[in-house]
Design a protein around this nucleic acid. Structure first.
Lengths: 94, 94
DNA sequence: ATTAATTATAGCACGTATGCTATAATTAAT
DNA sequence: ATTAATTATAGCATACGTGCTATAATTAAT
């Protein structure tokens, strides 16, 4: 029996967005600033309350972090938010 | 019978962060820039692909948006990311 | 005052961010 | 070469962001 026959397997038509380009750019930016400020992932994790594995996931662009997470990192690194976002997004082609 | 007796009701000890202050500041900033750029929520929704209700939720600081969402908004509004984050977070007290 | 436009709220389903814990892989130090 | 430190990966449970649809509330226009 074919698997498809028993499992409906209907995928959602609705698409969530994962902005690969932006997420990668942010990952780089965070890593850069973290090092610039002399933090290891481990220290940053401890002081910010964001778990280490999560910081690694962010810096390797595996996930799409929330603002609260980013805010916690910026606060700990003691840098303006704008610093973490000082990179260019490719403009939307219309 | 007491409700507590039948339902375990054990809440997770783990705490997720919702940075109320930051989320509120971002909400204001988005609203400000959206208007400055002459967009209604509805237009912004349509062009960015972010659903209207979601934009309202963001501007009323009900949710903690993801970076991909913010990136989509910045792209549509055609403003640098740093603009959306041009506000101060209260420094972390240690 | 009515009507239209805009913004806000509500509830649901689904996907995924996060915390947690453990381990592997990589890099730095000795 | 070993050891230590740092970073990356994995799998799970839980919370919650997002899309979707519908409706209410508010504000602007006539």
């Amino acid at each position: 029996m074919k698997l498809a026959a028993m499992t409906p397997m209907q995928q959602s038509d609705r698409q969530l967005i994962f902005d690969n380009e932006g997420i990668k750019a942010f990952a780089l930016q965070l890593k850069k600033i973290r090092k610039r400020e002399g933090y290891t992932q481990s220290q940053l994790a401890f002081e910010s309350g964001i778990i280490l594995s999560q910081i690694a996931r962010i810096e390797t662009a595996r996930i799409n972090p929330t603002l609260s997470t980013v805010f916690a990192l910026a606060r700990t690194l003691n840098v303006p938010l704008a610093d973490l976002f000082a990179f260019e997004l490719a403009p939307k082609e219309k």
